[in-house]
Design a protein around this nucleic acid. Structure first.
Lengths: 170, 170
DNA sequence: TTTATTTCTTAACAATTGTTATCGGCAAGA
DNA sequence: TCTTGCCGATAACAATTGTTAAGAAATAAA
């Protein structure tokens, strides 16, 4: 579906720990991950809290900021060295206006994220950190494998010390 | 904007603690609150966890279920006796198809809920229950005023005992 | 008004998590 | 190679929250 627009993309390679979008700035780029992994995180009094992980095949952007030109609520950063395809806001607009198919794909994507966001939220209300960690192992073992533990801890809403305790509990 | 469609609505009065939609069932109705308040909640091993509160002027439905005909992730229940306007899925479709204005209003509403859901989620990662309670007082004092405390406790992700302690701490 | 139901508070104890600090292992870079 | 920085484990103690239970207070129903 995106095949007609490959010319609009630019190739980008970045090392680990590269900031692709800074919290508070406006998102001008959307990223498609070919190789590597990214995370989004928010600043809490100088404390980094990771909110999401992305891997090969994922599209990543601060969608709210990208769409509305408002400051992003979070930063986007590479965890590993990455190979990305990028598209600018401007060129994306071309795609948006020339493909009803993609437009509705994006709408559906937005809707899906709303539901996911809600389910993630519910899992926070329903489960304690230990249960959330076990669910993460069950549903996304690739995260446990690839991502440094302290990122996972903040993603679970706990400290890395507490996560280490949970892992060695029994 | 909705004025042309008032004929499609039905008047409904319900006492307190009336279930308007049950978790797991498909949402066929959308509600507009004229008077009273509602809550949404999820079941967790027989434990009710409140996820949202709604007041006069709010539109309420399990939007995901209403749109996709999939089982609702949560129940909708009245907290106080309520006066509601209801519209069926079918009649809503008429509105949807005959008003581009409303269609885009709903899209915007969906987008807004995505962002809100995200912010609520971030506040869970960033703050402890005590901080969340204080923010709730600051941002939504009407909830504290009108809603029984144990609903608020589960909304904050804690037990009512713990909320009582937080309130009387100092 | 009296009774029943719901709501909130308090207490005691267990379990979990946060905080701070130290240490060892490992990998990237000089 | 050596150094530096990053990462995870552990310990000790403080603070918070969960659990269970009992009782007071407020509200609704009879």
């Amino acid at each position: 579906m995106w095949d007609n627009f490959t010319g609009l993309f630019e190739h980008l390679e970045v090392p680990a720990k590269t900031t692709l979008l800074e919290e508070g700035k406006i998102s001008r780029m959307m990223f498609f991950i070919e190789k590597g992994c990214l995370r989004t995180w928010v600043n809490n009094n100088g404390n980094e809290i990771t909110t999401q992980f992305f891997f090969e095949g994922d599209k990543v952007s601060s969608i709210e900021s990208f769409r509305t030109n408002r400051p992003s609520l979070y930063s986007i950063q590479s965890i590993e060295p990455c190979v990305l395809q990028t598209i600018s806001q401007e060129k994306f607009k071309t795609v948006w206006e020339n493909s009803a198919e993609i437009k509705s794909e994006i709408e559906a994507h937005l809707f899906k994220r709303l539901v996911q966001s809600q389910q993630l939220f519910f899992s926070y209300l329903k489960n304690n950190p230990q249960q959330r960690y076990q669910q993460l192992i069950a549903k996304h073992p690739e995260i446990i494998q690839r991502v440094p533990q302290h990122y996972i801890a903040s993603y679970l809403g706990i400290t890395s010390v507490s996560l280490s305790r949970i892992r060695n509990r029994r």
